[in-house]
Amino acid sequence: MIGDAFTLVLLDPMINFLVILNNIFFGSFGLALIAFTVIIRLITFPLTRRQLHQSRAMQTVQPRMAEINKKYSDPKRRQEEMMKLYREAGVNPLGCLGPMLLQFPILIALFYAIRQTLPESPEALEALSAHLYQWTYIQHAVPINEFFLGIDLKLAPNEASSYLSPAWLFVVLVGATTWLQTKTTVTTVTDERARAQQQMMAYMMPIMFAFFALSFPTGVSLYWTINSLIQIGFNIVTYGLPALKIEPLLKSPAPAMAPALAARSAQPQSVAQPAPEPRTPNGPGRSKRQNRRRRPE
């Protein structure tokens, strides 16, 4: 039932759309995949813009978040203050998830769409007929040429006959572009632990995706690479690239702060500070565990 819905709503339209793009782009499935990626990014641009907007907004409230972290040791209270801050600043911490969650169905459908459109066996070609619409323009295109720049787009690198196969290039490209994507996402994290986690993420994500690229059809890796490149472009436009002294091109305004927060931000810190927590024996805003960690041996 779910499988049928997935096929009808996502897989079949995607297969037919890819075949149409293949026809438009001179019978090159690689170019069709690149065009497909660009179109998907254009369609999801409102979500991406919202994500970037939210990321910038998160940056603006980072100092206040650090302050709250420092001030409250009680996790419940800290959470309450954080939520209050988010509400006042008009920030949704999950706002960055939209485009990422959208990648779920697209990636899964694309995996199958490529496997179906570029069949690996005569049986698979026969099965393709069940997915194609009865339009002459589409029917003429079968079978699709699976090669792009000498790379078989339906094969995964680990299925390639040799380690010298150009398909392996995509493992590197997926890893490199994912790493660049992470690095160009500028964030201001004040918490040491969060910074360490972010560092780990910056290296783990590319390795992980490169590992997955080993067993994905090269066409999916091509999609991922182009998708990452576009995201890197968006990141640079939004955040700039401090390492190369590139200023952000897009000066998107941070979300309007609630008047109370704006006023508090404008006032001296001593006035803006919320009511302090009662001082604990461990010091303000510190847990026993935190103190233990900082204490020299």
């Binding site: 990321s55 960055c96 990422m100 899964i108 995996f111 690996e120 996402t185 964030t187 969060a194 986690q197």
Partner: peptide
């Protein structure tokens, strides 16, 4: 991806894709 929780989401996403792919009927 400016929050560790996105790393977890990314990981889940990737695992889901790989699992789905492995279960897929090729």
């Amino acid at each position: 991806m400016n929050n560790p929780r996105f790393f977890a989401v990314g990981l889940l996403l990737a695992l889901f894709v790989v699992t789905s792919a492995a279960c897929g009927k090729i």
